[in-house]
Computed example of a mutant assay.
Amino acid sequence: MKITFLGTGVAIPQKGRVQSGLLMEIDEKKVLFDCGGGVLNRIFESGNSHTDINTIVLSHLHLDHVADVMCLLKANWLCDKFDSTIYGPSGTREWLDRLMDIYPYMKEKVSVDVVEVAPEEEFRLIDVCDVKCAAGIHSVPSLAYQVRSEDKTVVYSGDTEPCDDIMALAQGCDMLIHECSFPLEFEMTNHTTPDMLRPYIRNSGIRAVYLTHLYPHMQGYEEEALEYLKEEFEGEVHIPSDLMVVEI
């Protein structure tokens, strides 16, 4: 499996980080997880082709995770690619239908199959991997995804506080991609800080944790966050930059 971190930032602009998105390549098939503002250009900058992406998986419907979905669909149409599949939580179909109503010409140009999935649901994705969902703790319905292909397992948290359901998916996984929006001791709900996350990854058997969805508030506190987590976590801990590629 190859993971390309396309966007590791949030809705507030900051240098070097666009909004949320990552690309998983499994047996030469590519799946896009979230597609916030700036992600379409990051796909190009990463050396990938947007027309190779048939499948988009959305954690939730906040703008910094979906703003470039319509842009991607239009770019594909302009390059003679018309079919796509979007997986997402309850409400995804209504959200896309309303967008298509605003841009009616798109209805005539593209064919999008929307599959709504629910917490604890399992499904087969692109015929090469199995996916299981868990509910996050966020201000809107949000899903985390466990992706399993052969002997490799990756968990993507979406936006959430650390919670038992997501960590159950992550036990013993090769890679946990978990949001860490704010620095140590920052009082926050619906998102994660290092001190909120550390008790959950302790003794988890997770091989590596990658912290993403960083607010500008985290600038200057990255090393502090890494060192704090490493004090009680035996695996690797990283803060990826946009366009970082990791193979497992």
Results as ranks from 00 to 15, higher is better:
residue 3 I to N: 00
residue 4 T to G: 06
residue 6 L to C: 05
residue 12 I to E: 07
residue 13 P to M: 11
residue 14 Q to N: 11
residue 15 K to I: 12
residue 24 M to H: 02
residue 27 D to M: 11
residue 28 E to T: 14
residue 29 K to H: 02
residue 31 V to C: 00
residue 31 V to A: 00
residue 31 V to K: 00
residue 31 V to N: 01
residue 33 F to M: 07
residue 34 D to L: 09
residue 35 C to F: 01
residue 39 V to F: 00
residue 39 V to T: 03
residue 40 L to M: 05
residue 42 R to Y: 00
residue 44 F to V: 11
residue 48 N to I: 04
residue 55 T to K: 01
residue 55 T to Q: 00
residue 61 L to E: 11
residue 61 L to S: 07
residue 62 H to N: 11
residue 67 A to N: 12
residue 70 M to G: 11
residue 71 C to G: 15
residue 76 N to E: 12
residue 81 K to I: 14
residue 82 F to D: 13
residue 82 F to L: 14
residue 83 D to N: 13
residue 89 P to G: 12
residue 90 S to K: 14
residue 92 T to S: 13
residue 93 R to S: 12
residue 96 L to T: 06
residue 98 R to T: 08
residue 98 R to W: 09
residue 99 L to H: 14
residue 100 M to G: 11
residue 107 K to H: 06
residue 108 E to N: 12
residue 111 S to I: 14
residue 111 S to A: 13
residue 111 S to G: 10
residue 115 V to Y: 04
residue 115 V to K: 10
residue 116 E to W: 03
residue 117 V to D: 01
residue 118 A to I: 14
residue 118 A to G: 10
residue 120 E to Q: 15
residue 121 E to T: 13
residue 122 E to L: 07
residue 124 R to I: 11
residue 124 R to M: 15
residue 126 I to V: 15
residue 129 C to W: 02
residue 129 C to G: 06
residue 131 V to T: 12
residue 132 K to D: 09
residue 135 A to D: 14
residue 135 A to Q: 15
residue 136 G to R: 10
residue 137 I to A: 10
residue 140 V to S: 03
residue 141 P to W: 06
residue 142 S to I: 09
residue 142 S to Y: 05
residue 143 L to N: 03
residue 149 S to L: 00
residue 151 D to P: 05
residue 151 D to Y: 09
residue 153 T to D: 09
residue 154 V to P: 06
residue 154 V to T: 03
residue 156 Y to S: 12
residue 156 Y to R: 08
residue 162 P to C: 09
residue 165 D to V: 12
residue 168 A to V: 10
residue 176 L to V: 01
residue 179 E to L: 08
residue 184 L to Q: 12
residue 186 F to I: 06
residue 187 E to I: 10
residue 187 E to Q: 13
residue 190 N to Q: 06
residue 190 N to E: 04
residue 192 T to D: 04
residue 193 T to C: 02
residue 195 D to K: 05
residue 200 Y to I: 11
residue 201 I to C: 04
residue 203 N to A: 06
residue 204 S to N: 03
residue 205 G to R: 00
residue 208 A to G: 07
residue 209 V to F: 11
residue 215 Y to Q: 11
residue 219 Q to E: 15
residue 222 E to R: 07
residue 223 E to W: 01
residue 223 E to K: 15
residue 224 E to F: 04
residue 224 E to Y: 07
residue 226 L to M: 05
residue 227 E to C: 14
residue 229 L to K: 04
residue 231 E to N: 07
residue 236 E to V: 02
residue 236 E to N: 08
residue 236 E to G: 06
residue 236 E to W: 05
residue 236 E to S: 09
residue 239 I to T: 04
residue 239 I to Q: 13
residue 244 M to V: 11
